[in-house]
Nucleic acid binder design. Structure first.
Ligand SMILES: [Zn+2]
Ligand SMILES: [Zn+2]
Ligand SMILES: [Zn+2]
Ligand SMILES: [Zn+2]
Lengths: 160, 160
DNA sequence: CGGGAAATGTTACTCTATAACGTTTAAGCG
DNA sequence: CGCTTAAACGTTATAGAGTAACATTTCCCG
């Protein structure tokens, strides 16, 4: 975990993540189309959060002129299937580092180098500070938001 | 705490919050100007997160034509001084329910009625789930983001 | 092969947020 | 009190993020 904070063989890191993503999609009957795969690659290469328009720029730089919906559709797919996450505090997206299952996650985001480490959700269920401390990460600001149903709305509202 | 989930005398609730805000600003030498006070009132009355443009609409409805910077400046002031918070997951703002000090906070947001309860940061340092359970809130999705300095960037980067 | 659903392309638009600059207001001081 | 100066505000324009709507293509499945 938190490989992002260590120097590592990043080409390998990206490759194995792509292979893993393909396997996951195959297993679940999901279509990792070229457009979606390319966006995931872009996210994996960056190893940090990218805005939808950053991704668009990269796509356009490759000769394929793309409009916003192209990027957002791919991102929606990746996020809904747990292959990427949205960093709400930055309106940006990042590839998931352990996409075994649909999951919420907790993030440690460096404001200096912009590296993002994803902590398994369990670490944050307990104390986020603990996870940070064990990584040597110094927290300056947190965004903690839980969405769901309040006591009054339970039972009176459809589950989705 | 979490008064938002209970029916309560909301006029009183709003009044006392405004009085409190005035006292805090006086004590800290901050200027709670009419524009800022009005935005805070609007937030308090709503008792839920409002977008900057929702606030603008209300301001304009009162005969004072206002442009975006007017709302954003007031919101920036309120947020930097701990009198309001930004809900990143919704690009929206909410009045703080216990603005004794500058603080991060954790939020429980009902997706049905949009009520927002602010849990003291301490509750989330431990387990957010625990705080939610004790309120009867059913969590469906969480946004947990910590910003700060990663091990590599500490010492090499100015503190602000 | 054909029918239908999923995915894409394309255009236009909405919502969110800030830059930049000039004017007003008001706190602080001799 | 009148002066200085910084903070606050008004205004215009523009940047950045996200979506609606509809036509077209792709591809799965029978
Ligand atoms: Zn890597
Ligand atoms: Zn993940
Ligand atoms: Zn608060
Ligand atoms: Zn509710």
């Amino acid at each position: 975990m938190a490989v992002a904070f260590q120097t590592h063989d990043h080409a390998r890191c990206t490759d194995s993540a792509m292979t893993n993503a393909r396997a996951i999609c195959a297993a679940r009957g999901l279509r990792l189309t070229p457009a979606r795969a390319r966006v995931l690659e872009i996210l994996l290469e960056a190893h940090r959060a990218l805005g939808a328009y950053d991704i668009l720029e990269r796509l356009n730089a490759e000769g394929k002129p793309a409009q916003p919906p192209t990027a957002y559709r791919a991102l929606d797919f990746l996020v809904s299937n747990g292959l990427a996450h949205k960093i709400e505090g930055q309106n940006a997206f990042i590839a998931c580092t352990h996409p075994d299952r649909d999951h919420d996650a907790a993030f440690l985001i460096c404001r200096a180098c912009h590296t993002v480490a994803e902590a398994p959700r369990a670490a944050a269920s307990g104390s986020l500070g603990q996870a940070a401390r064990s990584l040597g990460f110094k927290i300056e600001r947190t965004v903690i938001e839980a969405e769901g149903l309040c006591p009054r709305c339970q039972g009176t509202t459809p589950p989705c």
